[in-house]
């Protein structure tokens, strides 16, 4: 599997820069995740110029230079890629996490191997029963063991 490059086109003016980010390529959660990290340095504003597009505007809080703004754009682009990667890792491992979390906090005894787990998950999806993980501090929230 080869690595791809992603091009980010941005507009630069005196104190701000803006990107259009395509939701077909980046999850909204990834865009939020990257934007959140910049609220200490920049005023961040999101807008929707078109369907499935998010315009991210970063306005520097301090007086800045074009070079510093470009560096900020580079940082944001990197954070967006990292954020997207994290979202994908999170989503693709969500079922595993639910399993080990429920075992860790509620001691549910279920099958141990990945193959058995995936088979179980498939069966559950077919039965259209979404997994529910009780929040750890809630009393009496689904602590019953289920011997799957």
């Amino acid at each position: 599997m080869s690595e791809e490059t992603a091009d980010f086109t941005f507009e630069l003016s005196e104190r701000e820069l803006s990107f259009d980010v395509d939701e077909e390529l980046y999850a909204l959660d990834a865009i939020y995740g990257a934007a959140y990290l910049f609220v200490d340095r920049a005023y961040v504003f999101l807008a929707r110029p078109a369907e499935r597009k998010v315009r991210v505007r970063l306005r520097s809080k301090e007086a800045t230079t074009p070079e510093a703004l470009e560096a900020l754009a580079g940082e944001f682009a990197n954070e967006l890629l990292n954020s997207q990667l994290r979202v994908r890792i999170g989503r693709s491992t969500a079922a595993l996490r639910e399993q080990y979390m429920s075992r860790a906090f509620f001691g549910q005894q279920q099958s141990s191997t990945i193959a058995e787990l995936l088979a179980e998950l498939d069966a559950e999806e077919m039965a259209e029963e979404p997994l529910e993980v009780p929040v750890p501090w809630a009393k009496g929230s689904g602590a019953e063991a289920s011997d799957g």
């Binding site: 959660d29 939020y32 995740g33 934007a35 959140y36 609220v39 005023y43 961040v44 504003f45 999101l46 306005r59």
Partner: peptide
């Protein structure tokens, strides 16, 4: 000079938090 910018940051943070 910063009121709406600060308010927008706060709205963004609260939106992210709510998710």
């Amino acid at each position: 000079h910063v009121l709406l910018d600060e308010l927008a940051n706060h709205a963004l943070v609260l939106t992210v938090q709510a998710r």
